[in-house]
Simulated assay, not measured.
Amino acid sequence: MIRRQSMQRRTLLNAALALSATLAATLAVPGLEALAQGGSGKPVRLILPISAGSGVDNIARAAGPALGKAFGQPVVIENLPGAGGITGAAAVVKAQPDGSTLGLVSNNHVINPSVFRTMPFDALRDVTPISVIGSTPLVLVVNPKVPAKNVKELVALLKAKPDSYNYASSGNGTIIHLAGEMFLDEAGVTARHVPYKGTGPMINDLLAGQVEMGVVALNAVAPHLKAGTLRAIGLCGDKRSAAAPEIPTIAEQGLPRYNVAGWFAVIGPAGMPATEVQRVHDAFARAFTSPEVLEAMKKQGTVVEPGTPEAAAAFFRSEAARYAALVKKANVKAE
């Protein structure tokens, strides 16, 4: 009896030692240190306040595996479009500030306060800016049935037939809408605005010819440009993109003041501890500067330059002021 109890104790001891070794080996796996050292331990919920198929959606999907590795825990990407990005951002604002719920937002986040008369949250005070990750080029495109191949021809067409053409956007007051309004203003022409609930439906109707033109992220329409089902008129930024060097900018085609690009940034709820902010910042920086993600971003034309939390907060304030002036000038109001 005593011998049997002794054997049982040795068996339990060996099992405990084996379990300890397994746990030690698990925590030593590269990428899992982050889970052991910080965070809530729950999967990271990354909310995209835009529809599937948009530029930021393509960016997040390409970086998803690297983000999971950098965090050392699963990263679940969730699209919550609606109200120009307010629906998704509101979900981030209401979440616990423990790093388990984050948002990947674009220009729209700081535009909305100037467009909507009432907001369910303060776009600057109720979030924690963590990093402006980078920017992606926007491009003015037309359906191939439009008899214009460049800015000069398109402007001539719009002047010859005022308000006969439609331009699409991903929603009223979005950066896509403002970019279209800015083009019309710079060119001195008019067209009818047709807002959609997201980039996906907008692109579908551009392809079908239900609307004639629109501004959209380059990475969202690159396959259609290559296939010839959409035609690029010009890039909206101040320089050409390495992903599509053959597409000239709108500025170099006669509208030198026209310059707008889409940026994307990671945010969390207000009140995140400084250590958690830094942990999330570092994970995103590691993921987006990893060789595989940099290569994917290069193919999309996306420029990656992860900034600090302090720089992100200052950038949000300056961009909010910039777009407030543009919204007022274009008389953009929520519909």
Rank of each mutant, 00 (worst) to 15 (best):
V216R: 00
P147M: 05
N204A: 12
V189I: 04
P269H: 04
L255C: 09
F315M: 05
A227P: 13
A160D: 14
N331G: 08
R231E: 13
A208D: 12
P269N: 00
M297L: 08
F284S: 02
R279S: 08
Q96A: 15
V92C: 06
T308R: 11
V56G: 07
V266W: 10
S100M: 05
Y323V: 04
I47E: 09
A312R: 01
S51E: 12
G84P: 00
L80A: 06
A314G: 00
A283R: 02
L225M: 07
N172K: 01
N150D: 15
G173V: 06
T11C: 14
G39F: 07
L218F: 05
V29E: 12
N107T: 09
T136P: 03
P201L: 09
R45V: 08
V293W: 01
D238H: 12
V92F: 02
P30R: 07
R192Q: 13
A313E: 12
L184Q: 09
G55L: 02
N259S: 10
V332S: 03
K159S: 10
M202Q: 14
E153H: 09
G38E: 12
D282V: 03
T289S: 11
I77P: 09
A325H: 13
G134V: 08
V75A: 04
K94G: 00
S106P: 10
K197I: 06
T199S: 15
R231A: 13
G307P: 12
S54Q: 08
R240I: 10
V105S: 04
V44R: 04
E252Y: 12
T249C: 08
D126K: 06
L235T: 03
L207G: 11
I130R: 03
L23C: 13
I176P: 05
G84D: 08
L138F: 15
T128R: 03
G200E: 12
G103T: 02
I267D: 07
V29F: 12
G262F: 00
Y196N: 01
A243E: 01
A148E: 13
S6I: 15
K239P: 02
S114Q: 03
P309L: 00
K197W: 00
K69V: 08
A217R: 00
T174I: 01
A270R: 04
L326M: 15
A18R: 01
D163W: 10
N14P: 00
L294P: 01
G271T: 05
P137G: 09
V92W: 01
N331P: 04
T199M: 08
R192G: 06
H193V: 00
V327E: 06
K299Q: 13
A89D: 13
